[in-house]
Simulated assay, not measured.
Amino acid sequence: MQKLTAIGFDADDTLWQNEQFFRLTEERFADLLRDHAGPDHLAERLLEAERRNLGHYGFGIKAFMLSMIETAIDVTDGKVPASIIREIIDAGQEMLAHPIELLPHAREAVELAAISYRVILITKGDLLDQERKLAQSGLGDMFDGVEIVSDKKPQTYVDIFTRHGSGPESAMMVGNSMKSDVRPAIDAGGWGVFVPHGMTWALEHADAPEGHPRFHELADLGEFAALLQQFQGKSSA
């Protein structure tokens, strides 16, 4: 078994809360437009806009704000009041200023990994917002590298784990997204560790690579120590 040398951690909804703030803002958005569209229809239109705009705006709160504004214009046939646009912008700015809430066992997991491995934060999203969240998290000094990327593809992990370690074959990626954290890391030749979150954005869903020897699933990061013990036991056997 190839020795594990580097561990990547996703940020949003793996180390700290994120999606719950998007959900709360969507509820506020639905209330603002209740006279123009039902909540389910509005949610569908918003998701369509987000999917359509990924290539233009990428991921993160600012992209979400722009998709909400576009959806508001569309469902009102261009008649959305400026006051509603203002409230959408205010809601987005509140999200950008929201304090970080670390998830249970996040600090312990990163601290444990940092003892024996190179540890890299690998996250998508807006550069300024992700830097802000990392600074507020108190975890920044534990990482050997921070990679804020436009998307997560197999080549992304090849490049990152080559820069920060001995290649993807000796690296592990830990995250809550099967689509972005687990499957592409495995496709790159590494290990993928799925840590589910109660809320996951619809565009991050994908089938699990069941039965793949490099796939692991944890109930939460409280089980991470036991997983590392397995790796350390196998590498020393």
Rank of each mutant, 00 (worst) to 15 (best):
L221K: 06
Q232M: 15
D31R: 05
Q17A: 12
D220Y: 02
A37Q: 11
H212D: 15
R214T: 05
W201V: 12
L66F: 14
D220W: 08
D141M: 13
R118I: 01
I85F: 03
S116Y: 08
Y157N: 11
M199D: 14
L24H: 04
L203H: 15
L221Y: 06
L218P: 12
D12T: 05
S137R: 07
I84H: 12
L66A: 00
S180A: 15
H197L: 10
A114P: 06
M178T: 13
A97L: 01
G167W: 06
R34D: 12
A97Y: 00
A225H: 15
A11E: 12
G58K: 02
I122G: 01
R183D: 08
L24K: 10
K3E: 14
F64T: 00
N53W: 05
L96P: 02
M142Q: 12
P209N: 08
E223I: 03
H36S: 09
D31K: 11
R163W: 01
K124E: 01
S116I: 00
L218M: 06
K3I: 08
A106H: 05
I73N: 13
D31A: 08
A202T: 06
H105C: 04
L102H: 05
A208I: 09
G222C: 03
T25V: 08
A82H: 11
R86P: 01
L121H: 08
K3C: 13
S166I: 11
F231Q: 10
A226K: 09
D144I: 03
F215E: 09
L121N: 01
E44N: 13
A109P: 05
F194H: 15
M65H: 12
H197M: 08
R34Q: 11
A91R: 01
L218S: 09
F64K: 00
W191S: 10
V149W: 05
Q230R: 14
I122Q: 03
T14N: 11
R51I: 10
G38V: 09
L15D: 09
F59K: 06
Q230A: 14
I84K: 09
G222E: 06
